[in-house]
Amino acid sequence: MAAGGDHGSPDSYRSPLASRYASPEMCFVFSDRYKFRTWRQLWLWLAEAEQTLGLPITDEQIQEMKSNLENIDFKMAAEEEKRLRHDVMAHVHTFGHCCPKAAGIIHLGATSCYVGDNTDLIILRNALDLLLPKLARVISRLADFAKERASLPTLGFTHFQPAQLTTVGKRCCLWIQDLCMDLQNLKRVRDDLRFRGVKGTTGTQASFLQLFEGDDHKVEQLDKMVTEKAGFKRAFIITGQTYTRKVDIEVLSVLASLGASVHKICTDIRLLANLKEMEEPFEKQQIGSSAMPYKRNPMRSERCCSLARHLMTLVMDPLQTASVQWFERTLDDSANRRICLAEAFLTADTILNTLQNISEGLVVYPKVIERRIRQELPFMATENIIMAMVKAGGSRQDCHEKIRVLSQQAASVVKQEGGDNDLIERIQVDAYFSPIHSQLDHLLDPSSFTGRASQQVQRFLEEEVYPLLKPYESVMKVKAELCL
């Protein structure tokens, strides 16, 4: 049975990233139509530049190519590739079939990587351009969430054990800070992308030097003109047959890092959902379990974690691919890159769409948070109580021993009897502590235990987050809708 299948058929496997999760716009960027249309555009740009620099290419040939950029006979191309065992030459023939007058000058002087690699770089750039505003929107939604809850005390956790208090907004800023680093890295790697350009079979530009009869300047002009037509500021000066596969490492490393950030955020949300302090959106008709109707599973956060793990592992592909590119190139890269580049971007696209949807509907339960604080705060307040007693004339050592005994009794009630923490009640009825009984409410005010959390939130948002989001103001209103 021949390899390949009808990918629109229910009898043929289709990647869930495309069929179930990723956005239509990201799927289109990695589609065959987008790819092969870009090949034709690159052939047109090459012909236009070659004509401008004096090669015998007519206006009629150029116009014929322009008129057929979208006229792609995919069936013919597939048949040609089956016959020739070469995808680029299959599309040269297919393009030439609908451009008979231009057929002889299509791909003039070029090698397969002229269309293959340059198209990949265009796709990487455009895919990054799709991700950047999506990530900015996630940051914006979380920034709104953090600002609104900047002063809401909550129990902090280290080692997932109760620690000092923080605020809900401050905790959210930990998430935002990681995503801001990801946004900066995505922008950097996007701006650092260079075009492969017009380089020939081993990167020496020998074929173009021959076409222009040894004119170095025209060869350099050709490279520059096509690079500018493709919208790049610069091209690699040095290439082998391909652009260095280190570029793929750079791009997928940034995406993998984004995956790590999203995994951490969504894990926190899942843990908070278990504590009943916070939940992701839950639709009115949504079913959490087929057997347990009360369940409210954090399905979206779980999906993000599941896909983020996949995204983090994909960076190993370009690392290994770059390491086995012998001399000017081997074909070890080809099949692998067809999979890992598309999957990385479709996965990143999915987790950003999902995280935006989550961040637009996060639900906080202040009463649950308050109750958990009441359970733990008495123990945390013991040092403040000791200091207040010393100020009232008591002995630190005597007070410490009193607190120690009462704390152990209260802990026994919590752990052995399943009761509430009654340390404060014990202190309130103990005559030894009568000098500070009137101060206990103040000493137990949760806001006095959150330090500068709310001020940190305000400063972080104003100095770091809002300036970073400013270039994306025009796209901030787009909502994230999930079908599944």
Rank of each mutant, 00 (worst) to 15 (best):
A3L: 10
G8E: 15
D11S: 09
D11K: 08
L17W: 15
S19T: 00
R20K: 03
M26F: 05
S31D: 09
S31L: 01
D32W: 07
R37D: 12
T52K: 14
I57P: 01
I57T: 02
D59L: 11
I72P: 07
A77V: 15
L84K: 10
R85F: 10
D87V: 00
P100C: 04
A102F: 03
A103G: 10
H107C: 07
L108Y: 09
A110M: 02
A110E: 02
Y114D: 06
Y114C: 04
I122A: 03
L128R: 03
K134M: 05
S140F: 15
R141V: 15
L142G: 02
L142K: 08
D144S: 15
D144Y: 14
T158R: 00
Q161F: 00
Q161G: 00
L174R: 04
N185A: 14
F195D: 00
G197I: 00
K199P: 00
K199I: 02
G200S: 11
G200P: 00
G203P: 01
Q205D: 00
L209P: 04
E213W: 11
T227V: 10
A230N: 01
A235H: 13
I238R: 01
T239A: 14
G240R: 01
G240I: 06
K246R: 06
V247N: 09
D248F: 06
I249V: 09
I249C: 11
L255G: 02
S257Y: 08
L258H: 15
S261G: 14
I265Y: 14
K276S: 05
F282K: 08
M292I: 05
R303T: 04
C305I: 05
S306N: 02
H310A: 10
H310Q: 09
L311V: 08
V315E: 06
T321E: 01
D333R: 03
I339Q: 15
D349Y: 06
T354N: 10
Q356A: 12
E360R: 01
G361S: 15
L362R: 05
I369G: 06
E370F: 12
E370D: 13
I373L: 13
R374A: 07
R374N: 12
M380N: 05
R396W: 02
R396N: 06
D398T: 11
E401S: 12
R404A: 08
A410C: 07
A411F: 07
V413H: 15
G418W: 05
E425L: 10
I427E: 06
A431T: 14
F433N: 03
S434G: 12
I436R: 04
D441H: 10
Q458L: 12
L461T: 02
L461M: 15
E462G: 10
E464F: 05
Y466M: 15
L469E: 11
Y472F: 12
E473S: 14
S474R: 14
M476E: 15
